[in-house]
């Protein structure tokens, strides 16, 4: 076992987590917006996108993306394919999370902001979004942890991250229990850090639930 090999594999995983987390949480915004749009057609398209994405395993999506781009004659590499797949798949989860956050804001606050004569954009910007955000940050941590673990599927198309590293060593005759326990610790550390970050940023004192 080489420490450098392990650390570089961890670095690949970390890089995937960071890019996917940022990419998916940003892409989730327009998807959530479309899902809550006034026009039924846009709403339907967003709902279909979310339904199809979430109804098929991430691993299957990964192969679909990987083989599609390869057939199309484009060879972006395993890591890039995996990142694109995870960004798109998790944007659907984030979108549903954002929508749930907005819907969790009690209608009384929305009505009060309307009764004051605030415009639709101001109502969202000044009242609904700040209240929804408190719910969203807390519940997004489970998606973040899901992303940490899902990066492992990338090993199956050859991205050289933690799981690939363990698999490669076991295939070369290494002790499976040892190698997978070691990478398990790394995954656990990442999940814990994200969990603590989320908890710090959730202000339970003034969540909308307390009127």
């Amino acid at each position: 076992m080489s420490l450098i090999g392990l650390l570089s594999a961890f670095f690949v995983t970390l890089q995937m987590v960071v890019i996917v987390l940022i990419g998916a949480s940003l892409l989730g915004i327009p998807v959530a917006w479309a899902r809550m749009a006034r026009f039924k057609v846009i709403q339907f398209i967003a709902a279909a996108f979310i339904g199809i994405i979430r109804g098929i395993p991430t691993l299957a999506w990964l192969f679909i993306v990987f083989f599609s781009v390869t057939i199309a004659g484009w060879t972006p590499g395993a890591l890039f394919s995996a990142i694109i797949t995870l960004v798109v798949v998790n944007s659907a989860y984030f979108a549903e999370n954002y929508r749930a956050g907005f819907e969790a804001v009690p209608s009384g606050y929305k009505e009060a902001s309307a009764a004051l004569g605030l415009s639709g954009w101001d109502r969202t910007r000044l009242v609904t979004a700040p209240l929804a955000l408190k719910v969203i940050v807390g519940s997004s941590s489970s998606i973040a942890i899901q992303i940490v673990k899902e990066t492992s599927v990338a090993s199956l198309i050859g991205a050289q991250e933690l799981t690939y590293y363990a698999n490669a060593h076991v295939a070369a005759g290494g002790n499976g229990m040892f190698y997978f326990s070691v990478i398990g610790v790394f995954y656990l550390a990442l999940s814990l850090v994200l969990g603590i970050f989320a908890r710090r940023n959730t202000n339970t004192e003034s969540t909308p639930a307390t009127i």
Binding site: Y109, E111, A112, A115, L116, L118, L131, S206, I211
Partner: peptide
């Protein structure tokens, strides 16, 4: 229109049973 409605609402204040004071 939406704009007229907002203007009108600002001229007619409303107080709710559940207060709806913005908690943030």
């Amino acid at each position: 229109s939406q704009r007229q409605l907002e203007k009108l609402r600002s001229r007619a204040g409303m107080v709710f049973q559940t207060f709806n004071v913005f908690p943030h």
